[in-house]
C-alpha cells in the first residue's frame, strides 16, 4: 500500500470515529435502566392491600391473625436516618394518643424492605424503641415485592456513592388496615399524629367489632 493511500484511509477512519463520537455526544440518549417501580403502577389503580405473613424476632406475623383490629403498616429500613424515624415517631405519637382500650384494638407493623441488612433481631429493638406496640418484620425479596405491590408501596435499592453503602428509595406512606383486613387509607409522610388518631378512631367505630375474643 502506498503511503499516500494509507494516510488517506487513516484520516478517513479518524474522521469516521470523530463523527461517531460527535453524534454520540449530541444525540445518543441511553434509556434509563427502567423507570421507578411506581411508574408501573398507574395512579388510578387503588391498591387492594391483602393478607401477608412475614417474620419477626417473635415468630411469624400474619395479617389474618389481626382481624378485628386496626393495623398500621409502614415500609422502611434501619439505615434510613431521617424519613423512617420521623414516620415511626409519628406512628408512636398516634399510638400514645389512643386510650388503653383503643390501643388493645390496634397493631403497628414496620416492614423492612432491606432484608439483606436488617435481621429480625435488629428490627425488634429498632421498632420497639419508637413504641413497644410496633413490631419489626421482614421477609424474602419475593414476599416483600408481593406485599409492596399489594399496597402500592415501592422501594428500590440504589448505589448512590455513599460510604455508608446502598440506600433504598422507598415510598413513605403509612397504611391503615381496617378490622376486616382491608386497606382503608394510605397516609402520606407528614400526616400529623392527631389526623392518624382520627382515622384510627373512625375505623374502630365504622366496622362492627369483629369477634376478637373468639380469636384469642
Amino acid at each position: 500500500m502506498r503511503p499516500g493511500v494509507r494516510s488517506a484511509i487513516l484520516s478517513l477512519l479518524v474522521a469516521a470515529v470523530g463523527a461517531a463520537m460527535i453524534w454520540a455526544a449530541f444525540f445518543w440518549q441511553p434509556q434509563p435502566p427502567a423507570g421507578p417501580p411506581h411508574a408501573a403502577q398507574p395512579l388510578a389503580s387503588v391498591p387492594a392491600g391483602g393478607d401477608f405473613v412475614l417474620r419477626s424476632a417473635g415468630g411469624p406475623v400474619a395479617l389474618k391473625d389481626m382481624r378485628g383490629k386496626v393495623v398500621m403498616l409502614y415500609f422502611g429500613y434501619t439505615f434510613c436516618p431521617d424519613i423512617c424515624p420521623t414516620s415511626l415517631a409519628v406512628v408512636a405519637q398516634a399510638l400514645s394518643g389512643l386510650t388503653a382500650d383503643e390501643l388493645r384494638q390496634v397493631e403497628a407493623i414496620f416492614v423492612s424492605v432491606d432484608p439483606e441488612r436488617d435481621t429480625v433481631e435488629k428490627l425488634k429493638d429498632y421498632a420497639a424503641y419508637f413504641h413497644p406496640k410496633i413490631v419489626g418484620v421482614t421477609g424474602t425479596a419475593e414476599e416483600l415485592a408481593a406485599l409492596a405491590r399489594g399496597y402500592g408501596a415501592s422501594y428500590r435499592k440504589q448505589e448512590v456513592g455513599s460510604q455508608g453503602g446502598y440506600v433504598v428509595d422507598h415510598s413513605s406512606f403509612t397504611y391503615l388496615i381496617d378490622r376486616r383486613g382491608g386497606l382503608a387509607a394510605s397516609l402520606p409522610h407528614g400526616t400529623a399524629a392527631p389526623r392518624i388518631v382520627e382515622e384510627i378512631r373512625r375505623l374502630l367505630n365504622e366496622t362492627p367489632a369483629a369477634p376478637t375474643a373468639a380469636r384469642g
Binding site: 411506581h38 434510613c80 431521617d82 424519613i83 455513599s162 460510604q163 422507598h170 415510598s171 413513605s172
Partner: peptide, 20 residues
C-alpha cells in the same frame, strides 16, 4: 462517626430518595 456525608432528600410522588 466513621463517616459524615452531606445528604439531601428528593421526593418523587411520595418516594423518598436520599442522595449524597
Amino acid at each position: 462517626a466513621r463517616v459524615a456525608e452531606l445528604h439531601d432528600h428528593i421526593d418523587e410522588g411520595g418516594v423518598k430518595k436520599m442522595r449524597p
